[in-house]
Design a protein around this nucleic acid. Structure first.
Lengths: 249, 249
DNA sequence: CGTGTTTTTGACTTCAGTCAATTAAAGTGG
DNA sequence: CCACTTTAATTGACTGAAGTCAAAAACACG
């Protein structure tokens, strides 16, 4: 049933700000087509003018910038359930790249349809606004993470954030999850080199805070990891859990 | 005339997204009281629940976080003309501090009044949304700045950003402006130590890119500074210049 | 089973941090 | 306007966390 595809989006937004049945119906009725992307595919590249935004049905993506010396910085992570690049559509052009971290199943929604949705339904606009404000809070925490924490704290912080966000997305319990990135990509998130990420991850492992098998992260001591990473989840501004979350557990 | 106080806010928002005369009138008619703050005063502290938001009539403020080892990271700068902490009101509590960098003249606007304004006038909500999206774009650029650029580039980038933003705020020409921060505060913006900021600023000065007198920054070679800082102003997403900007030059 | 990533390890370098002292500037009250 | 105090900027010598380079081991996959 095509109506079911965008239902998680409606639920997510309703968790931010109240939506009446008409609002929710308008969201799930947005025109969309489901597409599949393999790891590494670009959703948008710097300088392009997007025509669609993407609802991530399954899989994760990162938003990154290339700096002048050739380095790369990942400036945001989009997990299952997030709406990618709607905000960028409010601005003129994209000045960032968005790339699939895993294989991704996404619903492409034409920007025009979203534009008329928010014009007709202020409550939806409001909910999208609150979603954007919560995302901006994550950006600010990342500035602090990359600017003022040492490598051990930076990585511990990232591991905690992913644990909480993946759980909130209904993907996994907090203590065990699949890391959606290589160590090189992790390095581009936290502003370190891949070599140093590797060494620091094994420090955390040798301290007994985490265990790693393949790319699975198991958090053995949540309190200690949280403390090591100076992690307080309030900045994530997670909405109250919505019905759809339980179904996916 | 009290109506004139919030006129720059209306003009700024109208520059983001079209507002009809009724919208603009509603903005300038918001209840407000003008207050003065001296350097260092806190507008909001971590954990407080704000009751007002602040329109900066004159002066600048910073938004900062304290990390566990006692370090501080400035995660955002608010210059003359910006609306502080309206967004935070959409979330539950503030998890950041906002502090005056200079002496500040600000209009306190009760959050309740803004809440009913955006409920009644979707166009204003839309404009505030776009303002927030542009601000978020700055946060992402800062993540890249702090995460992947060396000290020289970081500082050059900040100097460029301030030059452009202060000019956009109608405060000064691009090539000469008043730095609203001490070197210690600059260090907290770019994630370095005050000592290293000092040394790096004089490197930029000795290279002939800038000149400093008191806290005035004069940019002697705009192209070179822009290149040194890997600075491309598009991420600022400045609106088209509005009438009120010319008056202040 | 070979091929191309990704992860891991070691030796060495460097950029930025630390600690501590000095100089300059900005207030402040008499 | 000048002593006095405080804050901010500057400088030097030394340290250290993270980067670099390069190679080996482990893994993923057709």
């Amino acid at each position: 049933v095509p109506e079911l595809i965008l239902e998680p989006l409606a639920a997510r937004l309703a968790g931010r700000s109240p939506l009446d049945p008409g609002d929710r119906q308008a969201i799930v009725s947005l025109p969309h087509s489901v597409k599949f992307f393999r790891t590494g595919t670009y959703f948008i590249r710097q300088g392009q003018q997007p025509s669609h935004c993407w609802f991530l049905i399954q899989g994760s993506a990162c938003r990154h910038k290339i700096v002048v010396n050739g380095g790369r910085q990942i400036v945001g992570l989009h997990l299952t359930g997030s709406l990618v690049d709607f905000q960028a559509s409010l601005l003129r052009v994209a000045d960032e790249n968005v790339q699939a971290l895993t294989s991704v199943q996404a619903a492409a929604v034409p920007l025009g349809a979203v534009a008329s949705l928010i014009e007709q339904r202020p409550a939806v606009l409001r909910a999208l606004f609150e979603d954007a404000v919560a995302e901006a809070s994550i950006f600010r925490e990342w500035i602090a993470n990359v600017g003022r924490r040492d490598s051990r704290a930076r990585l511990a912080h990232l591991l905690c954030e992913l644990a909480v966000r993946q759980q909130a997305a209904g993907l996994s319990p907090t203590c065990l999850y699949q890391m959606p990135m290589t160590q090189e990509q992790i390095a581009d998130v936290v502003g370190l080199t891949p070599v140093h990420v590797n060494r620091t991850l094994r420090v955390l492992e040798s301290e007994g805070l985490i265990r790693r098998v393949r790319r699975q992260i198991e958090i053995l001591d949540w309190n200690a990891l949280q403390q090591a990473g100076d992690f307080q989840p309030s900045y994530l501004h997670l909405p109250e859990p919505q019905p759809y979350l339980q179904t996916a557990a």
